[in-house]
Simulated scan of single mutants.
Amino acid sequence: MLIIGLLFFPLQTTTGWILISLLGISLLVASFITYYGSDGSDQMSMLIVITLILCHMPDLAGSKLREVGLWFIGLQACLSYTVAGIAKLVSSEWRSGTAVRDVFSTKAYGSKQASQFLQKYPAANGFLCWNVIIMETLFPLCLFLPWEYAMVFLIWGFIFHFFTALIMGLNSFFWAFMATYPAIYLINHEMPWHLF
């Protein structure tokens, strides 16, 4: 309901700021009462909401503060991808090309069909593992590349999170990380120089 309200009241308005603040409070309360630990999508969602609350406070937030908040969100997303990519790079399971199959074989995040497919085609498992390692590690390049090349990383991220949601049921990762892509777009378009 709060998110629907934000469609009608921009964050720059007092009502919009109250709605995003209520959303932040509800996320905070949910994080305290949930039985299970939070994951990266919960942390990213909380970070985005807190940044929006702080950067859109009535009478305090100017356009420069809002821009700093968007830069923070975009840079945090790139950092999250890179840290995840480096963590996978140092993991022998990811480097050997077995990690994706192993995850799909679990009860919590598994998919019988995906697991069977990767058992039958081990090369696909290796491809998926290295695809994730490379794209996550190099993701910050999207800030510096010309937009037509930077879009490759954002399209990859969309596909990655979409299929993660579809196969593993991790829907919140899709929404949390897609919410950072407009900030990445802004940073890319405000960069004073690009690599090419």
Rank of each mutant, 00 (worst) to 15 (best):
D102H: 15
S26F: 05
K64F: 12
G74P: 04
L118E: 10
V49Y: 10
F144G: 02
L52D: 02
L28M: 05
G74R: 01
T137R: 04
W193E: 11
G37C: 02
I33T: 15
L154S: 03
Y185V: 06
I20L: 10
Y35I: 10
G69L: 07
L54Q: 03
K107A: 10
I133Y: 05
N171M: 06
Y121S: 00
K88E: 08
Q116K: 11
F196D: 07
S105W: 02
F9P: 02
G85Y: 14
Y109Q: 08
S96A: 13
G74D: 00
I33D: 05
F127E: 01
A61K: 01
S21F: 14
S26V: 02
A179G: 07
D42Q: 11
T15L: 14
W71Q: 11
F139A: 05
L65V: 08
I167W: 04
A176H: 00
E67Y: 14
S21Y: 03
K112F: 09
A165C: 08
T82H: 06
A176L: 02
H161L: 03
F158K: 00
C129P: 13
C78R: 08
G16Q: 14
Y35R: 13
I20V: 15
D59C: 07
A99Y: 06
Y181M: 05
P122W: 07
S105E: 07
G97L: 08
F117N: 06
S91C: 04
L170T: 10
L65W: 08
C78N: 05
H189R: 12
D59G: 05
F32R: 13
F127D: 00
S21E: 04
G24P: 02
P58C: 12
Q43N: 08
L141R: 11
M135W: 09
I159H: 03
Q116F: 07
W147Y: 10
L23H: 03
P10T: 01
F160T: 03
A176Y: 00
A165N: 07
F173W: 13
F160L: 05
F139H: 11
W193K: 09
F174R: 01
W193Q: 09
A87S: 12
Y36R: 15
T164A: 15
P10M: 09
I18M: 08
Q113D: 07
K64Q: 13
L47C: 05
A61W: 10
G40F: 00
M191C: 12
I50Y: 15
G85R: 09
A61C: 14
S115W: 04
